[in-house]
Nucleic acid binder design. Structure first.
Lengths: 232, 232
DNA sequence: AAAGAGAATAATGCATTCAAAATACATTAT
DNA sequence: ATAATGTATTTTGAATGCATTATTCTCTTT
């Protein structure tokens, strides 16, 4: 009876969540925030104490994160935070470019005028941040704009695949410090992109986005390499 | 000590597998083979008895399959085989087209002459199957050719993403019966595709593949719709 | 002192157990 | 007879316990 009533309106549903479902996002955030670093051994005991749960739900959460590629399960040896190699990163970049390009194309058809105006507003804010040199604000808005294309595309599967890739390479994108030159280039490309979006130019926009994403990611790979050489 | 040695070479690693890791593929196959149909409730008890394991590893396997999108976990109510809606299918198709298009482009750079010859051989076999009307053989070779592009691309991440999408829509592709006209069209497109691959035409090949995949998938969506109307 | 063997300790994998919730069933009241 | 309530059974979620495997520590030997 109560269930019947509850079924009638979503708002009356008591939000019930399993322990492992609650655990998974918490653990994911710990990794994404850097509390746990790539290669770190994940001690079941320690985390159990920290979260105040038994090993069963924790292990289930670890299984889920392993499926996402965020942790690695070594048989009989426990779990470690997954390390992503340079090679894997290099594999991911062209895929992200292809997905964003597709998102842009779909967005041309699917986005409302209001949607486009919203992205233009974000872009304006981003330009302001660029001109005044607020890098962290710039990066945040830049990320929002890229994510906006996926929302505008109206394809939840596509958006979630992008998000999943972004998670996998979390430590390597939107964080890398750009050189002045590459930053300027990226900004100029953004100008063109917004223009093409406003015109709903289905031929030009995907091309621009693909080139843009490929360009920025290549820059990142270069700088990552440079850091490595300097360190070594 | 033994572990130290094992760490030195992958080949010396004793292939030890956890129960849940062994369970996951078995369960996946049960779903893919249709032993368990979309919407079916998955009885933990029944499966435990069938595999002769306790609930713990089984539930871990279910968690993994849920992350893959193959089963759905309903809180406090157990698991069911995930049902994929028409809408979700429609979302997946353009993504597959984009991924295959990218794979084709990468393949132009990465594939050796021998690789290309191998695909050509598969294509020749497929054409033979087409001309003699062996549909199941045709479909199998068709699938192999599509998968080959991903292998030739030399991008493991891309290949696994494609595989994962393929798994999700398993019941809706490479199975759908084609009409004579759409089959003929698909075959003609394949001819062009193999030609462009042989020429390593990086501009033409991706375009052809994208059009081909989009075309066949649209056909499938149409036929699926037709079936539904007929049934309803 | 360094290397290796062996024991002690800890951690993992799985089964079992316990508690809570859902479903099925029977009983009662209208 | 039907609907509603209360009870029993089943099922799920999580904790605990046990056996096996890995790791660490110590002690011996060279």
């Amino acid at each position: 009876m109560i269930q019947e009533i509850a079924r009638m309106s979503v708002s009356t549903l008591i939000p019930r969540q399993n322990l492992h479902d609650a655990l998974t996002p918490s653990l994911r955030e710990m990794i994404l925030d850097g509390d746990l670093k790539p290669g770190d051994k994940i001690s079941e005991r320690e985390l159990c104490e920290r979260f105040g749960v038994s090993r069963t739900p924790l292990r289930e959460a670890l299984k889920v994160l392993a499926a996402e590629g965020l942790v690695q399960l070594l048989p009989q040896r426990g779990a470690i935070v997954a390390e992503i190699s340079e090679d894997e990163i290099k594999e991911v970049f062209p895929i992200m470019a292809a997905l964003e390009s597709l998102a842009a194309e779909l967005a041309c058809d699917h986005a409302s005028d209001a949607d486009i105006a919203h992205v233009e507003a974000l872009h304006a804010q981003m330009m302001k941040a660029y001109r005044s040199g607020h890098e962290s604000t710039y990066l945040r808005l830049n990320r929002l704009i890229h994510e906006a294309f996926f929302e505008l595309a109206g394809n939840a599967t596509l958006a979630s695949m992008y998000q999943s890739l972004l998670t996998r390479i979390h430590s390597h994108r939107f964080i890398a410090r750009k050189s002045e030159a590459s930053w300027k280039k990226a900004v100029e490309e953004h100008e063109e992109i917004i223009e093409a979006l406003a015109a709903r130019d289905k031929r030009r926009l995907p091309r621009l986005l693909r080139k843009h994403v490929t360009g920025t990611t290549v820059d990142i790979a270069k700088e990552s390499l440079a850091r490595k050489c300097k360190a070594g």
